[in-house]
Design a protein around this nucleic acid. Structure first.
Lengths: 415, 415
DNA sequence: AGATTTAGTTTGCATCTCGGACAAAAGCTG
DNA sequence: CAGCTTTTGTCCGAGATGCAAACTAAATCT
């Protein structure tokens, strides 16, 4: 822990002010005073410095009449132009790149439908580099005007070191993606687990605003786990992001079994392949269609197909129950593509959680399903970079904006 | 997060200084300057205040000649008399009470061999109250001279609220032990999970000094889990301590199964009872003897007995593997009574961990077995209370003392 | 037009840390 | 033994910060 000096003091309070402005949209100095419990003097001084640095801008228009009387409030908001960041999401079949402004609004995005899981890390880095350059240029910016880049990908990532230890989309291990991209693009670059980014995006912009503890479970070809604990992204001892796919379902003497081998899309499709013969074409080549067919048949009453999905849901529910026992989060967000939306998957999942939790934790966690667009990932990557720019001194992820007032409901989503 | 003002600044730095003094034994101001990276001026000012408050004392004796030349260093150390705290540990068959000084040294302790698991919470509180009064008085102190009391007990504890949600030693649920004891004794009282206290004691005084991440798994009649993560005791979202016994071993569709029903001493003895007929007397009444007999027979080659232990070890290993996947701690401390010391238990445990971990985490965690005396629990309770007295401003558990210099190897232990 | 009300700023003061000068206390040197 | 050297610890002034209170600004109310 850093020792305290006036500079740290200022950094902490400046962060609080920035955070309040980000969370509560256009906001006046008095309101910042209330939210942060800082004195008006301090708020005034800090906002003056932020205005001076052009990180925030005043909004003189007295659009909403506050309270009739008195001097009108000058609303302050983040300056969207204060910085630009790039978010990149690597999925097995697609690279998504987006440029966002200082408010986390996406200015331009770009999708490269490439099956990167059969490419080497170098090729992937080439593709990412090209994508970033193009996306930045299409957004009307220069690379030199970009303050940071964050790449999200599934697997085990050591963010601090900028190394991807292992990922389903990379053949190699211990890939130093962070340093590589930073060198290629001449811009600060970081990497993180994709689900961590999604969790951060939910915290900043999404459903989990204002919630300091929740889990995000993402089911795609691999299984991702993002944990927000005490307002912070939770990481293992070395800054490692945990991989839900590595969770074991049984003791080795009872057959063992990784969760990824049961509950991922890949595993489900492999299990279901015998029942899909003739219905869907070549299962491995067109997983989307195969999955759609599987769900259709299961929901239509096909017992074999339903059982495959139920087994996956139940296994995942079992793992989630153990996580709830550990973290006691008020909310668990299950996301993914088509599969997680199906009752044939979710019902067994919920049942398994309910059956596995001890009585004392039976009602603490609300499990919700949420389908994400590509947007969320890159938004998370942007938020991660912005977090650094805001200068959080002790590493706290800024909390989240509750919807408030007119025009504040721009980024929310429904379950 | 609290906003920063000069007071917080001072609190942070004072804590760093206190922490350095605690960790590095008698230490001079220059050394504190080195350890904390504070300026000599600041260290001087803070130590002067601490001396003024009698929290630390100077040691003028130039015992060890430092470097021949120059003004000799004035060594500073915690004042043992600065405060006294009481630690209490509730186990199913015993209450242990101890009085410790400001350095965490146990001045006096007292054991009440009572099977509290068949008593009501009120009776237990009576017993604890009597024990504390007696122990304090036997230590030659007044209750008014005690700065705080901490009670450790197995189960799910919500420390912040002072409530024990559920415990194997309490018949009731949601027992507000903290407030109750505070009212009875007129002294600040807190409660925590016993394993959390053990983890804290290991961190302050024991094997895990200097280690900021480790797990403690305690096997007794119930299964406890203590997690030290980033130098802090890890708690769930509401400040709940997790209970390892509530971990599930399989999905409900595959039979479910709580870990506590397989790997606790109680469960092992229940499983082994048929094989112990005639060898040990009445198993439930004399669990210690029955366990000893079980281990003896297992190690002598009795297949049935060995299998019971192996199953418990393997199940626990499975759970530990999943925890390692999540936390990636460099060390896992398995503790308990006789059972955990037996190879018939530990070997299957290690094997299960090795078989369950993904390759990327194969070597991160060192699993050690440690047998504890009652001492560790009350020491942890003392440390927990001292931590508050030290005034850690942002809630950090003070780190740990590396062995250094003469006579510094008093509290270590071997695996 | 003046009172009232609310927002934000300026002023004065206390606290903190820090760098550099300074005092203290020992050994070394001749 | 007196003076030099070395190391430790303290004092002083500068710089930065936050806060309370007085003050200015800008609107509505009467």
């Amino acid at each position: 822990m850093k020792t305290a000096d006036p500079e740290l003091m200022r950094a902490i309070n400046r962060f609080h002010v920035m955070d309040a402005i980000r969370r509560f949209g256009p906001v006046s100095r008095v309101e910042i005073t209330e939210f942060t419990a800082l004195s008006p003097t301090t708020v005034s001084a800090i906002t003056a410095a932020l205005l001076d640095d052009r990180l925030i801008i005043p909004e003189h228009v007295g659009a909403v009449r506050d309270l009739g009387r008195g001097r009108p409030r000058v609303m302050l908001r983040l300056n969207p132009e204060a910085a630009h960041v790039v978010g990149v999401k690597l999925a097995s079949d697609q690279i998504t790149v987006a440029v966002a402004n200082f408010c986390g609004e996406i200015l331009h995005s770009l999708a490269l439908p490439v099956r990167i899981d059969r490419q080497t890390a170098t090729v992937i880095a080439d593709l990412v580099e090209d994508g970033v350059r193009r996306c930045v240029s299409d957004a009307g910016l220069e690379l030199s005007g970009v303050s940071g880049i964050c790449v999200g990908l599934p697997g085990v990532v050591e963010r601090a070191a900028g190394i991807c230890r292992q990922s389903p989309v990379l053949q190699e291990r211990d890939v130093p993606f962070g340093a590589d991209l930073a060198a290629r693009l001449g811009t600060p670059a970081s990497i993180d687990s994709d689900v961590n980014l999604a969790a951060l995006a939910e915290h900043w912009f999404g459903q989990a605003r204002g919630l300091n503890d929740f889990l995000v479970v993402n089911v795609e070809r691999s299984l991702g786990l993002g944990i927000l604990h005490n307002g912070e992204l939770f990481r293992g001892a070395n800054g490692l992001s945990p991989d839900l796919g590595d969770f074991m379902l049984r003791a080795p003497g009872e057959g063992g079994g990784r969760l990824a081998d049961v509950a991922s899309e890949t595993a489900v499709l492999a299990d279901a392949e015998p029942f899909l013969k003739g219905v869907a074409g070549d299962v491995p080549a067109r997983p989307d269609r195969a999955m759609a067919a599987l769900i259709r048949r299961a929901e239509a009453g096909d017992g074999d197909c339903a059982r495959v999905l139920a087994r996956a849901g139940e296994s995942l529910g079992f793992a989630i129950a153990n996580l709830i026992t550990l973290f006691a989060p008020p909310k668990v967000i299950v996301s993914g593509r088509a599969m997680t939306a199906s009752d044939c998957f979710i019902h067994p999942l919920r049942a398994a959680v309910a059956a596995s939790l001890p009585a004392s934790l039976a009602d603490v966690s609300d499990i919700v399903v949420r389908e994400w667009s590509d947007r969320i990932w890159v938004q998370g990557a942007a938020a991660m970079t912005l977090r650094d720019l805001y200068g959080a001194p002790w590493g706290t992820t800024g909390p989240a904006p509750p919807a408030r007032g007119i025009g504040a409901a721009q980024a929310g989503g429904s379950a």
